[in-house]
């Protein structure tokens, strides 16, 4: 019942943890990527600069980590190809953890993405970047409260000066290895949507592997987006995977 990373052109070593790096455009995501991996990917200041998906690796506390830089997006609702790539990787690539890089000066817009990522996977670390910029503009960000509100570790950083990166690495590792157990904040939807999604969830369950969030997929179907369920199916090449689901379907049919 394993989807392999090969689907995404990734070939992690057997003992390597795979970490996805998501974030809005212009949050210094590439800077964080470079700072963590020691790579020298060029970081221009224009939206959409990361057109090639980058990968880099680093070792933290004797753990090998493969970091995958996803395209910068405002949302994961899959309106654009970039959003679809990011969403599919977080959902189907099954990274051991996903880091969402946010801009401390513009939190509200960035939290929108964080909340969406947390709907797909609980294994999230939020990197509150550009803290120096926030300080310069006299914006105070209470990162501890943010961690409590979101239910996932939030780490303040100034990536271009290397500030906060060790703590970020610690948090990534702890979430990826399960040392930190998160309890992500859930968005409250209108009651009729919630009800419809719960009902639909039961109907689609047989068609889906256990590890995807069925409620989240039900929401996508309700808003008229069936691309994710199709993406899952197009990746289920392995017969054994299908067999497991088939059993589920049979049980459901009875």
């Amino acid at each position: 019942m394993e989807l392999t990373y090969v689907d995404f052109g990734l070939k992690p070593l057997p003992d390597q943890l795979v970490i996805a790096l998501a974030g809005n455009p212009n949050t210094g995501k590439s800077t964080v990527f470079n700072a963590l991996t020691g790579l020298k990917q060029h970081t221009g200041n224009w939206p959409g600069k990361t057109v090639l998906r980058a990968e880099g690796s680093f070792i933290h506390r004797n753990n090998k980590i493969l970091l995958v830089d996803l395209p910068g997006t405002y949302s994961l609702l899959a309106t654009s190809a970039d959003e679809q790539v990011a969403r599919d990787f977080i959902c189907l690539g099954r990274p051991n953890a996903t880091v969402v890089v946010t801009d401390a000066t513009c939190l509200e817009r960035n939290l929108n993405l964080v909340l969406q990522v947390m709907e797909i996977t609980p294994k999230v670390v939020v990197c509150v970047n550009l803290m120096d910029e926030a300080k310069r503009r006299k914006i105070r960000v209470d990162v501890d409260t943010l961690s409590r509100e979101l239910g996932v570790p939030c780490i303040p950083t100034t990536a271009r000066d290397g500030v906060g990166l060790d703590k970020l690495k610690d948090a990534i590792l702890d979430v990826a290895t399960g040392v930190t157990v998160t309890s992500p904040r859930r968005v409250t939807y209108e009651p009729y949507i919630k009800q419809a999604a719960t009902q639909l969830e039961a109907r689609i369950r047989p068609f889906l592997p256990k590890w995807v969030n069925h409620y989240w997929i039900a929401l996508r179907l309700l808003e008229g987006d069936s691309s994710i369920i199709k993406a899952i199916w197009s990746r289920l090449e392995d017969d054994s995977v299908r067999a497991v689901i088939k059993e589920g379907t049979a049980a459901w049919a009875r």
Binding site: Y74, L77, S80, R109, N112
Partner: peptide
């Protein structure tokens, strides 16, 4: 699609 884009922008 345009509506979706606008929504996603916030």
């Amino acid at each position: 699609l345009i509506r979706r884009h606008l929504l996603d922008l916030g």
